[in-house]
Structures are given as C-alpha cells and as structure tokens.
Amino acid sequence: MKAEKGLTKERVIHQKKSISRGRVNINDVTISFGSGANKNIAVETTTLDIPPGEFVCILGPSGCGKSTLLNSVAGYIKPASGQVLLDEKEVTQPGPDRGMVFQQHSLFPWKTVHENIAFGPKIAGHSQKECDSIANTFLSMIGLQGMAGKLPGELSGGMQQRVGIARALANYPSVLLMDEPFGALDAQTRLIMQESLLNIWSEFGTTVLFITHDVDEAIFLADRILIMSAGPGSIIADLNVELPRPRHSDIATSEEFVDLKRKCLSHIRKESLKAFECSTNH
C-alpha cells in the first residue's frame, strides 16, 4: 500500500503523519430513525475495527444503511446506542480529522476551485499564503492546475469529484470517508478516477472508508470488503482482498479477482433471495 516509486520528502511526511493515526472503531452501533410505530432501524448492532491506513469498501444495495453508517463516523448522525471511536476518541460531531467526499454537487458553487480546496486550511487558521500553497499542491496532485480560477459549474463531473477529494485531503485528515464518490460518473471516467484515487491514497496512506454498490469497484480498490445487507442494515461478510498493489484496471480479468467477485455475488444473492422471499410471503 505504500508508494513503490522514489518517495519525495513530502510523501514521507504524509505517511508519517497518517500511518500512526486513523483507527476507526465502531462498537455495537445501532442507528434508527423515527420513533414509535414509525421507528426504522437503519443499522443494527454493528461492530468493526478498522486499523490505520486500511482501504475498506462497504458494499451493498441502495437503502441498506451504508450512508447511515458512514454518516455516524462523520459525526452527522448520533448512534442510538454504541460508540464510534477515532483513535480511541469518541466521535460526537463532524470535524476536519474526517474528510468527507460526497456523491456529487458538494463543492461550494460560488467559490472557485482554488477557494474550495483552500477552504479547510483557511478555516483551520492558516495564512493566505499557506492556504494558497496547500491548494496549489493539491491542484497539481489532481492535475487541475489550469482550472484553479474556474467555478465548479464549469467543470465536468469527474473533475468536480477530483476537486472534492483534494478539498477533503487538504486538511490532512486521518480518515477519508467516501460515499459513492464515483456513483454519478460514466463507466469510463469511473475507471480513471479509481486508478487516480489509488495513486493518491498510496501517497497519503490514510484510512479510507469507501461506499459503493459496484462489486468491481469494491474489489479493485479495497484491502477489505464489508458486505452490508438491509433489513435491518448489518455487515454480513468481511472479506480480505489480497490482490497485489499497485493495481491497474486490467486486474479485473485475473483469476483472483473473478474468484473474489463470485464470492461477493453469492453473498449478495443469498441476501436478496431472502429479502425476495420475505416480500412475497407478505
């Protein structure tokens, strides 16, 4: 998971900063919405231990509670019971130590690309000069130096997501939380984005919690896949992905990849069949 090529000084700093932090613990977390007769349990007593620097994909169909679980780590939602810990400290509110990347339309449309990326450092109290230099570093990392002065509305969907990733990383968070960040992109762009995400991650080594409902995406990206199923939302499988890194998209035809995919699909199929039988019995 570390960068293979020569490490620049900066890269080493990233790694040192990040590798020792970013442990996420989810302890007996239950999350529900509404109350009384309308009570809906979105996540049922879930426990997870995610070590620093791990790339974890949470895979599951729409509505199974993936976003809800991620939002509790982000601090947007309080669990009904249980605790979310980041490096042994309980999560009680959103904060810059957990960078968030949303599916789409999450850049501030009135701020330029540069201002969007510099937002976190600016809030953190860095001087304008520092903010500019951080923003420039990240702009070149995502290959959008030429777009610095553009507004988000002038960018393609893929570019916007790259800026979203850069904006989250500009705070040097210990965890990157990504909620179907490529879900709204076309298949072609999605592949490019997946590869570039892995490149970026290899430099930063932050813990990543990545939500997707695309099996290929999960296998291609992850060290570990958590398969989630609905009714009520819970983790039904925890698979390790042993594919070597760095990964390229042609890995999708390798035997290991296909094996893993078969495994994932059979877990998902079992669950959907159960759900299907449930719904027909009613």
Partner: peptide
Amino acid sequence: ENILLPEEQNFTVENHDSTKSSTE
C-alpha cells in the same frame, strides 16, 4: 441513488481497459 442493476449484469458489461485513457 443510482438504480441498482443486478450485479451479474454489471459483470459482463464492465470492461476494464486501461488503454482507453483519453480523459473526459
């Protein structure tokens, strides 16, 4: 949310071809 297709369908259609690297 994107409408979730059965995953089996995704499998045959998706084509991981890194040579198509022209950016969007």
